[in-house]
Amino acid sequence: MNVLISGGCKNGKSGFAQELAVKLAAGGKRYYVATMVPYDDEDRERIARHIADRAGLGFETVEIPRDIGSCLEKVGGNGTFLVDSITALLQNEMFSAGGEADPEAESRCIRDLGAIIEKAENAVFVSDYIYSDAFRYDDITEKYRASLAAIDRFLAKECDAVLELCAGNLIFHKGGPKV
């Protein structure tokens, strides 16, 4: 089963996604696909906190900040993959080249995530809902928002269940509470 989890920031998506991945794995292999690239001490502390959160849940961490489909080559498709987050993945793919936004980033993410959906036993994807503010962004930011939304919509279409988290509560957009 494949599940997309989105919603506003700081609503408990990561914690819920971890529990769900453990449940879906049902004792089988579980992989945490780490997408975050630390830039400063604050990031490093956050990563350390996340690793501590996952300790005991049996996740094997696979560090793949870019080219995420290669996690399948590394560990095979047998198991449950938690990708947290699509937001960070796209950022890495789009802006790793320096100042310019890579126009191929969106299609690369869709191709790689599609491969995970196709080959993995289970996958849980976490994204961020960043589309409802009254602000005019610059062109690069708008391109990033449009690309993230396109990836989210692709995942929503392909996944068996789509959930929105609001203050720790679940809204089911696709698939029922049986998830």
Partner: peptide
């Protein structure tokens, strides 16, 4: 478009825009 979930916009026009919408 739902433009109602961000921080209060700094500029008055943007605040009025959000309110009117």
């Amino acid at each position: 478009e739902d433009i109602f979930c961000g921080v209060v916009p700094l500029g008055k026009d943007m605040r009025d825009w959000r309110e009117m919408t």
